[in-house]
Design a protein around this nucleic acid. Structure first.
Lengths: 344, 344
DNA sequence: TTTATTTGCGTAAACGTTTAAGTTATTCGA
DNA sequence: TCGAATAACTTAAACGTTTACGCAAATAAA
């Protein structure tokens, strides 16, 4: 019971060859002309001896580890851990396991992790990387193992992506506020070249421009949370005519909410507020805040489907053009029109 | 560049045996009498050809996969994903990788996952399991691979545990409220036999009893969030003399906070509130809520240390008595004494 | 009856390592 | 000067699989 039983043990126990055993294990009994009688005996022995295949040996032989490497900033961020769970479950159905790591946005750590993934012979990579790390992952693209990136688009990288449609989502959010009678809508973002942030900004500006209203954008040079809160405070105090605010990222929403700490919650109290990225917190906050929710399940599903296609496709899939999938986010409305300021 | 280079390739390139190459790779050059000259040539070739060891092959040969299986309810829960990150980082230092799965508290899924872990020949298990799953993991204890459980103590299972000291932590929380002048402190928990919940309750009752005050306990037969909120509401309305409440779990705190949805936030507004388990949300909530924070880093560190000891120890460690480590939680005070109702 | 095909199974090589057990040449102590 | 120790390597087996190939018996075709 203690020592592991191998195919050889089964073969000896039944009095046959390891080949025969291997064939029935792999469901090739018919195909490989193993008689029903022998197959039955083998299956019985497998049961009795409690045989469990050694996946390491199998991987070595087949060249497929059935492991997917998952790489993000920080696995403990809700979006990432939620996605990790979804991907893990979907991957398990197809016999894959996930190993994960957090880069902490550190270049050295990232190369190190990718190196380990290669040594472990992962079959595929799933990653969300910050700009500046294009080169580290770039070397992998077009290689043996397929790579699918998500969440962040890196303009320099011609890879397969599964993204949230940032442009569309912010446009919809902005339109939502307009439809509900808000007149002076501000957009608070960070000063960056990150593609997804630019897309979000564009979603806002285009809708505002089309409406003939005035753009009110605060671009924060992000240092830390305290500082951001101060800038937001100053911005809102100065522009007292604003009646709605869109925060372009969840941490910005948080920084905004931290105004309550200094007793400045009034600055947001009477306004329409939309947060990009939904989080549990928002269910409890007063006044209620509408949020753009990333479609985690859909993202996971698309990533896995893409990977499976590439893993199955072999050479054909490898030369295929990169795919970029844009998924529409959901607007979780918790606050309706301006006048009533009602809560749904 | 495309095809993987093996030890054999290095050996051929240098004109030596694979044994020699293997020795220098494993840093046994001196010990195994490889001349500095040859070692240097080998190292050069390794660099030039970009050799990366095949960890699958190594694992097969050595019998050590250097993989740790991590098993929890739901990896997307903040406590678990936080711990996952911490463990991953600490394990990486020692050359271990983590694979994880979410059981969803499902028995079949749990056995299935454990089976997969065994097939993958994980070197060790880290798990937080709900009661009822004792048997599934029980079979592993005392086997080849060490098992460390955390978060939940399962009375039937004689295993190694790393836990938060629930008794001590609730006692401290209760004492904190007493010290700050609260007189009528309620304890809201669920109706269960879960050891950690019983410990928390005991922490409360013992301190209350010693103080000569009256116990006010609500045990909820948990069905769903809505229902729990209703029960809490009724309880607080009926016992209007209460001036403080301790929620024994984070989801109970949430259910309590949901009173604001029906406009009943007044029921908590004027009271002292402590939540077991801290979460981001609590930084924003008014009135501010003090919370017991689980020491994630310490838990991770203790788990890894325990595992390493057992992995290194071999037979001696296997026969050793199970270790139960109780770590003290931190009380994050966000609210001080009763009179002022001030916010820190 | 002979030949070809199908059925049923076993032999052995390979995947990329590690490592016990050689082998040869050199140094050394007496 | 000669066995013994040391230094510098190599040979080959093993880890547990998968799978190409080979071979014999049974069946079908001619």
């Amino acid at each position: 019971m203690q020592q592991k039983v191998s195919i050889k043990d089964i073969a000896n126990h039944v009095g046959t060859s390891i080949t025969a055993v291997s064939f029935v294990i792999n469901g090739k009994a018919k195909e490989k002309y193993i008689s029903d009688k022998l197959a039955a005996k083998i299956r019985k022995a497998i049961d009795e001896l409690g045989y469990q295949p050694n996946l390491l040996a199998r991987s070595l032989r087949t060249g497929k580890s059935n492991i997917i490497g998952f790489l993000v900033d920080d696995i403990s961020k809700p979006f990432f851990s939620g996605l990790a769970r979804a991907i893990d479950e979907k991957a398990a159905v197809h016999g894959y396991k996930i190993i994960f790591s957090s880069t902490g946005n550190d270049r050295e750590r990232t190369t190190e992790i990718l190196n380990i993934y290669q040594e472990r012979r992962v079959d595929a990579y799933v990653a969300a990387l910050a700009e500046g790390l294009e080169n580290e992952i770039g070397g992998l693209i077009g290689g043996e193992a397929p790579v699918v990136l998500f969440d962040r688009y890196l303009p320099g990288l011609d890879a397969d992506y599964v993204l949230t449609d940032n442009f569309w989502s912010t446009a919809a959010a902005t339109q939502h506020l307009l439809d509900n009678g808000f007149e002076n809508i501000a957009f608070i973002t960070i000063d960056t070249l990150q593609q997804q942030m630019l897309d979000r900004l564009r979603g806002y500006t285009e809708v505002i421009d089309r409406s003939g209203k005035k753009q009110e954008v605060l671009k924060i040079k992000y240092q830390d949370s305290e500082h951001a809160t101060q800038l937001i405070k100053a911005f809102l105090q100065k522009n007292s005519h604003l009646d709605a605010v869109i925060f372009a990222a969840n941490y910005l929403t948080m920084d905004g909410l931290k105004l309550s700490r200094t007793g400045d919650e009034g600055l947001l109290q009477s306004k329409g507020v939309i947060s990009f990225d939904d989080f549990e917190l928002l269910e409890f906050i007063r006044p209620s805040i509408t949020a753009v929710e990333q479609p985690i399940e859909a993202i996971a599903e698309n990533i896995i489907q893409l990977l499976l296609k590439k893993l199955a496709g072999g050479a054909t899939a490898k030369t295929a053009k990169p795919v970029v999938i844009n998924l529409q986010a959901k607007l979780n409305v918790r606050q309706s029109s301006k006048p009533q300021n009602a809560q749904s």
